[in-house]
Design a protein around this nucleic acid. Structure first.
Lengths: 252, 252
DNA sequence: TTTGACCTTGACGCTGCGTCAACTTCTAGC
DNA sequence: GCTAGAAGTTGACGCAGCGTCAAGGTCAAA
């Protein structure tokens, strides 16, 4: 089974120019080139194109895509990673939908929309932030840690995180005090959760910097739009911050 | 409440250069410019930026974005349209996830992955296809028809379509014959569904071309990757095609 | 054999910024 | 009040990822 350049382009929703471009830069060579110079693509080439288009959709540059495809030993692993990336993208879009809904509701009810919630779901790279706050090494360590996990472990971690967040939101909605026993036990769980990440002061047993970090995280949940909407709304984030501050002051 | 260029950039996950670029091209002016030439952004500017980033994520060019924002009378309508667009994007990603899963499973089970399913979820523009097959006018008419609908009507139409597809898939899975009474009643429903779209031969009462179109649609469900995965798998699409062909031969 | 669709290789252009460079302005500590 | 450093400004150049001619060669059908 073989396709000409136009057939493949039409089916993939791109132009033949793009395929020629990919050939020129060595990203996707046709499986066969006729004596007349015509390009022909077989199933393997189509599979490679699928992966290229997937990564391109996720915003990767063509050179980065070429690297990934070159380094790849197991196609199955690559596909699994792609599914994970797509699921993350879907979740990000879900957050954006919620964010726009918030803006819309605020606008309709006459309330002033809040900047933090409005911009939730747009930022992707924590990288620079982590580096500037905790140093390059911290980023390296936590990044290696994350990518050293299996996909199942990554899923488990995400589930843990979601459970924790859900518990926080429920507590905030219940109207209990941030200094209540329940809230403080959540804060303790939060700190344990944080301490699982190597490279953080808490994981390294640095008490001084641990306290500072826990307080800082609390502040970020409120102030940093990167976390906006994570704890449902501003009240939720404030609740988490207050609970964490209290915990850092009294229990650490 | 006002932010400097860096503050806004950091929070939106872009660079200050990008904001300056948007100012230069007239896409997003700062709400205030200090005597020192510094740019300051207020909430309204942030809201506009939110919409710009939303549209940019959906692949629109900056000039197209500017047009949309200029033409817009009601911000709420714009936001609602955005939510709809984001939901579609999310659905598309869902389809891609299923498509990649299919490729992965085929690879693991040793089966050869199928090109049509592999490329499902990549094409977006039916436009050229519609024009080349049914003429520019057909596209204009059906496009006007679609955009003349309210959001509620659009949702209802999508629901109808999904119901129809689900019925087809269930019938195919049940193992009944494409010429069975049940399949033929589904085919009749399918033709009625098609005839709702103005500009199509069926809607215009052109019997000859109607038959041709129904057959052609059936073929496309099988051969055209644009519809790949719509009826679950190749067996589903084949079932629909056979049922439609039989209906076109005997009932129209 | 002709017509029209599809293929080829250049080559230039456009968009959406990244990235200096050169300079001014604000902020914080001594 | 002075000075260092962070953050602001306006050019100007560069690059990626194609779109879009131009100037042809190839192929299938009539």
């Amino acid at each position: 089974m073989e396709w000409t350049i136009q057939e493949l382009a039409a089916r993939a929703g791109i132009t033949s120019r793009t395929l020629r471009h990919y050939d020129r830069i060595g990203l996707l060579a046709p499986s066969r080139v006729g004596a007349n110079g015509y390009r022909y693509y077989n199933l393997a080439a189509v599979a490679r194109l699928q992966r290229i288009l997937l990564m391109r959709r996720l915003g990767m540059g063509l050179s980065a895509i070429a690297e990934v495809l070159a380094d790849e030993v197991d196609t199955c692993d690559g596909l699994r990673a792609h599914i994970a990336a797509l699921e993350e993208e879907r979740d990000r879009i879900e957050r954006q939908i919620r964010s726009v809904r918030h803006t819309l509701e605020a606008l309709q009810s006459g309330a002033e929309p809040r900047m933090d919630v409005m911009l939730a779901g747009f930022n992707d790279g924590y990288k620079d932030e982590v580096i500037s706050r905790w140093g390059e090494r911290a980023f390296q360590v936590s990044n290696d840690w994350w990518h050293g996990k299996s996909l199942d472990q990554q899923r488990a971690w995400k589930q843990d995180t979601e459970d924790l967040v859900a518990a926080w939101v429920a507590a905030a909605k219940a109207g209990v005090s941030p200094t209540s026993e329940h809230a403080q036990s959540l804060a303790a769980r939060h700190v344990r959760w944080l301490s699982q990440i190597p490279g953080t002061p808490t994981a390294e047993g640095d008490r001084e910097r641990s306290i500072e970090m826990v307080k800082c995280m609390g502040d970020m949940y409120v102030d940093d739009p990167r976390f906006a909407g994570m704890y449902d709304d501003a009240a939720g984030a404030t609740f988490v911050r207050d609970a964490l501050h209290a915990y850092a002051r009294t229990q650490m």
